[in-house]
Every structure is written in C-alpha cells, then in structure tokens.
Design a protein around this nucleic acid. Structure first.
Length: 853
RNA sequence: GCGAAAGUGGCGGAACUGGCAGACGCGCUGGACUUAGGAUCCAGUGGCCCUCAAGCCGUGCGGGUUCGAGUCCCGCCUUUCGCACCA
C-alpha cells in the first residue's frame, strides 16, 4: 500500500501552483470579488507556529472562497521599515536593507512551505522607493489640506530607542517596543491631524457590523467622545475669563473652586504677584518634568494661586488652584471643581480643606445630606438623581438639568455645548534612519517648503554610518541634508526625520490593487471595485494602533477624492496567539512588530522576541521553547501543521500548543490517504460503469457534513469544521471494507472539503483519482437537504418512561404533530427513528406537540 | 476602581434557536501485528458502586424560572483582557 509521505508530495504541489501562477488574479476579471488580506508582516526573519496560525487561517479562507466561485485576491507584502533592522545594523554591521531583504526571502520561503498561496505579482515592500514615494506623495497631499503640520507639543520620548513616539505607542507609560519608561519632552514635531476626524471615526464604528465588538469598544474608548459644555468663569484680577470644560454642567452651582493644569497659559499671570512666587514656580517646574506615570504615582497635589474666579451662576468668588491631576492636553486645561459630585475633586477638596457644596441627591431621599458627612462624591447621573439648591434647575432630574443649564449657558453667552475627544493628533516624525524621509525642506528665507511632487521620491541614502550614538545618522549625511530651496534656490536643509511606519501600513491595502504603478498612488477605479477589503485578519494588538490609523487615512484619501469608501476593512477577524508551556510568546501574536530587546518579568520573557541569528535562521529554542515550523514540516508535513493549527481551538481563542496533539492530525490525514488508496485499488482510477449507490447512512452523513462544514467556514469555526471532516472520514472508513467501490464519489467530496486544510495531500489524491485540474479550481460541494434526512421517521413519545404514542411521518413533517396528552409534572421524552431527539413543546396540562428538529 | 469576555473529563475542546452533556482529537488502559516500537490497527475510557445490567451524582458556587437548564434570570467567587486622574 502506498505510504503517506508529505515530504515528497508537498514540494511537488508547491512547485505546481507556482508554475501555474495559481494565485495570480486578474483584477478586471468579471465575477464577485473577494479581497482576503492578512496584515502584512514586519520581516523579522523567522516564523514559528504562532505566526502560522495567522497566515494558514487566511489561506484556508482564501481557498474556500475561491472554490465557492469568487474572484479571490490574496496579496502579500512587507512592512519593511522599522527599528529592528536599524538595531541589527548597529549590532552586527549589516545594512538594514540587506537584513530586511534577507528576512523577506526567508519568510517567503516559509510561506511557500506552509502551502500558502499569495498573488506575488502584487507584492510590495514599504522600504522600496517605489512604495515610499507614494507615502511621501500622500504626506504632501495631507500637508496641502492642512492635515499634516509641524508643531511644538509635549511629546513622548523613548530614551532607549532615541525617538519620539505616538500616544498609541505608549503602554502603561512605557515604550511599546522596548519597554523603556517614556519621558515627556517639549519638542517640535510632525503631526497628522487625526483629531479632525474624531467624530467620523467614532460614528463610523456603528457601521462596522462585521467587526468584533471588542475592537470597536476599544476604539471608542480611545477616541473618548464626551459631550458637555465649555463655561467661562470671570477672573477679576486678570480682566479676562478662564474657560473650563465639563461634562456635568448641571453641577455648576456646586463648583466651589477651580483647578488649572500647571502648564496652563494663564498661570504666569496668576502667580506674578504671589508672595511665595519662587516656591510655586519651582513646584510647577517639578511637575512639568514628571512623566505622566510619575504624576499619577505622586497622588494629588496642588498649590493655591492666591487669585479667585467668579462662579457665573452662584456669583461666589472661588479660589483658583493649580493641580497635578489636571491635564493640559485635554479639554481647556482648566476645570471647575465640584467636590460633592466628582471623586477627584472630592479628594482634592478634602486634602486642602476646600468647600464642598451638595447640589444633587438621590430622588428618593428627603433629608438633604450634609457636606461634612459626605464620604465620597455622589456621581449618579441618571434620572434617579435630582438637582437641589441650583436656581432655575432645582428639582430637575439630572439628564433634564443638563439640557436646561446648557441652553441657559448659551443664552447668557457664558459658553456653549461642546463635544470633546480624548484622541490627540498623531505624532508621525521619528528621529530614526530606516523609514520614509519626510519630504520637507527648511529654508532660512522661505521657511518650511514642501518638496515638489516632481522631485519625489526623496531617496533614503544607503551610505550612512551606524554607530548607535549621537542621534539620527541621516542628519550627518551631508549630501542628503544640504539642498537648494525649491522656491528661492538658496541653500537649505532637508528634514531628516522619517515617518512612523504606521503611516506606511495605513494605506498599503489599496496599493496592492495597483502595485508597481509608477504614475499614480493607485488606480481609483480599480480600487473602488476592490475596496473595502472583504476579510482582514490580524492580531488584536492592532485594535487601536494600525486599525485606527488606517481608518483615518482611508477617510482622508476619501476626502482627497482618491477613493469612494470611508472604511477600509469590511470584516475584521482577530486571531489569538498560540502559547506554549504556560508562558506567552509575544511574537507569536505579533506578526508585525518584531521586538528586538526582551523584557523579563518574574523570570519569564514578557515582552520582546527571540534574537534572530540570520546565519542559522533559527530561533533560540532552549531559551524560549517556541515551536519552529521547520522540524514540524520535516516530520509530519505542512498539511499536518495546517490541520492541527486550526483544529487546536477556535481561532479567536488563545491556544496551547501540544507536541503530542499534532499526531492526531497526522493520523487523520494518514487515514484519509489510505482510505483513498483502498478505494482506488477497488475501482481503478477512471470509472467506466456507473458506480453503485452508497449506503443511505453514508449519503446522509456526507450531506450533513457538507452543510456543517460550509456553515462553519462562514462562522470561523474551523476547529469543528475539521472535526466534522474527521467524523465523515470515520463513517466512510466503516463502510470501506464492504462498499469500497460505492464510496468513490463521496470520498472525492471529502477530498474537496479537506482541500483548504490540507491542500497538498488533497491535490495528490485528486490527481490519483484521475480528476482534472486542481482541487483548488473545482467547485465547493453543495449539500442536498433531502439527503440529510431519512425519508420517513418514526416518532416515539414516552411519558414518565411509558410509551404514549408512536407514529410514522414523512421527514421533515409539514406540520407539528400532536402526539400525546400529558399532565403537569409528567416527564416527556421523544425519539425519532430510535435515535434522535425530537423537540417537544409543552402546553401545560394539555398536549405535547412534537416537531422533528 | 470602570468596562468586556470566559469558567464543561487527566488535557485541547464539542453541544445551532433550552431537549440523550462530554462530538472530534490528545493522553491513558487492554489487545493485535512485531526482534522491538515513541510506527500502525482494534476495543475501552466523566465520577460513584466488586463485575454486568440497573441506578445515583455530575458543566465554578448559591438561589430561581421551566415538563426539561451547560444554555435563560438574580446574587456571589475565580480567571483573562482592555481602560485607568480624560473633568
């Protein structure tokens, strides 16, 4: 009997697909499109089984939709700029480009060995001028529209990576990449004005019906939309008011003091004649030098300015304080403090002995609480809370009071209703070499001058030294830095900052449609046909970062008239990572970001990935215990890895890799293989005479399986899809000895359904059976509903264990079948054909209606 | 603290709208073939009871709804994941 030898089969079919250009798709071909996309990876070098899950999943889906007759596109590219390449250059003296291209080659090879089909005719790498020139072009369009600007702001500086970071790249006060504590610095940097799109990005989430709720929630929280009002509090000593933002204008009668951020522009004027000005100044300087993390850890702290504002509603003078907990970046950098109804204000007031005035109480309490007895702020804001002692809004429930007082604020010209967002502008400049040069020039005479489109791309010079010291190596490249001003022709300097690599990745999905087009960023007509991406797959770690940026840039491109859609990804799926030996391998879920340094927590690697040695091309297994795909493929084949990876758990769930478990997938494939050859030996490859009909049980199972597998594909339930195929294979196996010849057709249907999971083996079997073409290009089987059931069934109903009724009916019965009378508390059981359960609907005291499931 | 998701055998996990809990697979036990097997095949495998049959108990804990609850409702406990002075 022919042995199952994946090592021989797999390379053969990989070659065959490549030669046939099986995945190359004509984007103008007629038909229903299916744009399948995996988040393009950072080419860190090697991939292990955790990465495999991501790409295998995509490939399985791609093959499925293709067999379903869709014109399917499955492209792949490389998020090829980034820090690890530069760090490798510093450490080992390899040029980032060489390091990156070498890794790309290795990863491509790995994809091939997994049997993943990509349309390589559309490949792109963000580090090539061919790609990044359009990055620069897009930047210039945004600059013209005022969506890219240079501005001074307190920014996050990573001392380890020697660069600034976007807010989204700071996690718990630490650099997302290296884990170093981030410090605040006041620097002039390049920003993209994502805040202009805050409302649209928030509202657009409602339309993303096929995105995980979790991701939408995270984005919503990140954007942080809050509805409230700006109110101006007069400050007599200043001669001008200070504006505050509040989401609770209904509490304004309880505002007993005001707190400003230490960075607030009015602070200098307010403390100018402070008796202890020097001490307050030192305190402010101290706070300003603290990182966000340090500020929070310090607890609440404040200083009295000595000045007062006037509460415009109570007309009371209220002291103006400075506080370390008020953020300049949010709202107006100033708050009205209502200690009775805001926990932070409450704590601050208690600490410094400030007035507390109660203006809201639970609607069901008649005795007003006393401020002195208050143990925490009363923050209820639904209709159960009622306003007291507040002039025109007294007696109103909170929601109504908010409306009423907001109108009044506008009527009196004290301020206006406002919507504010937590989201801040996207800081995109990086003081690093390996990235897209920002196409701007500084001229002493003309100021900031954009590089003319005709001069694009601004090429990243390759001949730079990598010392790892003294900042960005680009700044030392004379030929790059010194240019003529495009406006006046005088001597000028080039911008040496490069772009955040998230800019590269925020529009690449559209470039695949026109990859290699030197004349334009992409062909809008084709892009309009192919966008949005039908199925996007990647790790949850980009819930905010990449996915928010991409949504923003897509809208910006929409507004530039480049494409029709506002949302880039119609359906999103986040696969989870694969774990091993109880610890989390961060790089397994992190297909994009290769982390170069490892942070250890409690003796385990917490953040960071394996150090890659390009010469060997293997992960350091002893240290990290990750499963390398090479060995696995050598031993069991890629098909086994594919089947096991999908069988292990639902893909959105973390899964623990088990070396023993793999054998189950291998045995399964072996059984299918041998079953095929058993059938072949009986019938011979080409069938001349009509095949005998398979047993009814086989047919029924076959069609149930087609139905189940198809449904499960659509719902990403690959683990149970595989188990359904195992069951079918078991049933076929049971009948093989007696009815081998009759099983040929059923078996081939199994082969087809198994194809997305085990493409190599199924191609081999398909051709062994004399079928023409690839399984890949055959069509997906359709279940026959009639064959999924028996023609007639016997329904048996027992009440309290005694036979109450028995009837033979057509299957499925057209109507409900009334079977028996039962009394309350009687126990009813129903059976169909001695096996399946029927559904019974109990009508108390009367009847049992039996309906076949 | 706020928000979200999840708790089922020794393990990964099934169970569509409430209807035979544990599909499928791993592991384990026994057997077959073998010089041997970590290869392959067959049988068994939630717990209790000496065995079969029968029975009883079983989906984190405590209540409830229902003829019937892993599934629905209420209250806890635990775990994981987000957010965390955002006014």
């Amino acid at each position: 009997m022919t042995q199952y030898q994946p090592q021989e089969i797999e390379p053969k079919w990989q070659r065959a697909w490549a030669e046939a250009k099986a995945a190359v798709v004509d984007l103008r071909a007629a038909g229903t499109r299916f744009y399948m996309l995996n988040m393009f990876p950072y080419p860190s070098g090697d991939l292990h089984v955790g990465h495999g899950r991501n790409y295998i999943l995509g490939d399985v889906l791609y093959r499925f939709f293709r067999m379903q007759g869709r014109v399917a596109l499955n492209p792949m590219g490389w998020d090829a700029f980034g820090l690890p390449a530069e760090n490798a250059a510093i450490k080992r003296g390899i040029h980032p480009r060489q390091w990156t291209l070498g890794n790309i080659e290795r990863m491509k090879r790995q994809f091939e060995r997994w049997g993943i089909l990509y349309d390589w005719s559309k490949e792109l790498a963000s580090c090539e001028p061919e790609y990044y020139r359009w990055n620069q072009w897009l930047f210039l369009q945004l600059y013209e529209k005022g969506l890219a600007y240079r501005g001074k702001a307190p920014v996050n500086w990573c001392p380890q990576d020697q660069t600034v970071l976007a807010n989204e790249q700071v996690i718990d006060g630490r650099c997302e990449r290296c884990g170093a504590e981030v410090v605040q610095r006041e620097l002039e940097q390049w920003f993209l004005k994502i805040t202009d799109y805050a409302d649209r990005l928030d509202a657009g989430l409602d339309d993303l019906a096929e995105w995980p709720e979790k991701v939408k929630l995270m984005q919503r929280n990140w954007i942080g939309r809050s509805v409230g009002a700006d109110i101006e509090f007069p400050v007599p000593s200043l001669g001008r008011p200070i504006r505050v933002f509040t989401t609770r204008p209904d509490t304004v009668f309880g505002a007993t003091f005001m707190v400003l951020a230490p960075e607030h522009p009015e602070v200098a004027a307010l403390i100018a004649d402070h008796p202890d000005r020097a001490a307050v100044g030192r305190w402010i300087a101290e706070i300003r030098n603290q990182s966000a993390l340090e500020r929070q850890e310090a607890g609440k702290e404040g200083r009295f300015t000595g000045k007062f504002a006037v509460n415009p509603f109570t007309k009371q003078e209220i002291p103006i304080w400075l506080g370390n907990f008020v953020l300049m970046q949010y709202g107006t950098g100033a708050i009205m403090s209502v200690p009775a109804h805001d926990q932070r204000d409450f704590e601050f007031a208690k600490q410094y002995g400030l007035d507390i005035r109660i203006v809201i109480q639970p609607g069901d309490s008649d005795a007003p609480a006393s401020a002195a007895e208050l143990e925490e702020a009363f923050t209820v804001k639904d209709a159960s809370a009622v306003i007291i002692d507040s002039g025109l809004i007294t007696g109103l429930p909170v929601p109504e009071a908010i409306e009423r007082i907001s109108d009044e604020i506008e009527r009196l010209g004290l301020g206006k209703k406002t919507i504010r967002y937590r989201l801040r502008d996207w800081l995109i400049s990086r003081q690093r070499y390996w990235g897209t040069p920002i196409p701007m020039i500084y001229c002493d005479r003309c100021g900031l001058v954009p590089v003319p489109e005709s001069d694009l791309p601004v090429q990243l010079p390759l001949d730079v030294p990598f010392t790892g010291r003294e900042g960005n190596p680009l700044a030392k490249h004379e030929a790059f830095v010194n240019v003529k001003c495009p406006q006046c022709g005088g001597a000028a300097r080039r911008e040496t900052d490069t772009m955040d690599t998230f800019v590269d990745s925020s529009w690449y999905y559209a470039r695949f449609i026109s990859a290699g087009d030197a004349s334009q960023i992409f062909d809008s007509k084709l892009v309009n046909r192919w966008l949005p991406v039908d199925q996007y797959i990647g790790g949850i770690e980009h819930a905010i970062l990449h996915l928010l940026y991409a949504r923003f840039i897509c809208r910006a491109m929409h507004d530039l008239g480049l494409l029709r859609h506002e949302e880039p990804f119609r359906r999103l799926f986040n696969q989870a990572m694969i774990t091993k030996e109880g610890y989390r391998d961060p790089s397994s879920h992190n297909a994009w970001v290769a982390l170069d340094e490892v942070e250890w927590r409690e003796g385990k690697p917490y953040r960071g990935s394996v150090e890659l040695t390009p010469e060997v091309g293997k992960m350091s297994k002893s240290r990290f215990n990750v499963v390398a795909p090479d060995e696995l493929i050598e031993r069991y084949g890629a098909d086994t890895q594919r089947v096991y990876t999908l069988f292990i758990a639902p893909p959105e769930k973390e899964a623990a890799w088990s070396d023993e478990g793999v054998i189950g997938a291998y045995r399964f494939l072996g059984r299918v293989w041998h079953l095929g050859h058993q059938i072949l030996e009986t019938v011979g490859a080409p069938v001349s005479s009509p095949a005998p009909k398979p047993p009814a049980a086989v047919l029924r199972k076959l069609h149930q399986t087609i139905d189940a597998v198809t449904r499960r594909f659509e719902r990403f339930e690959f683990n149970t899809a595989v188990s359904a195929l195992m069951e079918l294979s078991n049933v076929l196996g049971e009948h093989a000895a007696e009815h081998a010849a009759a099983l040929r057709e059923s078996y081939l249907v199994l082969v087809q359904m198994l194809h997305p999971f085990a493409p190599h083996m199924t191609e081999e079997l398909w051709s062994a059976f004399g079928e023409k073409g690839f399984v890949l290009t055959s069509s997906w089987p359709v279940a026959d509903a009639a064959l999924m059931r028996e023609e007639t069934v016997t329904i048996v109903v027992q009440v309290n264990g005694k036979l109450r009724g028995q009837i033979e009916v057509p299957n499925p019965p057209a109507e409900e079948v009334v079977m028996a009378e039962v009394k309350k508390n009687e126990r009813v059981q129903g059976w169909v054909a001695g096996k399946e359960v029927v559904r019974t609907i109990y009508v108390p005291g009367k009847l049992v209606n039996v309906v076949v499931r």
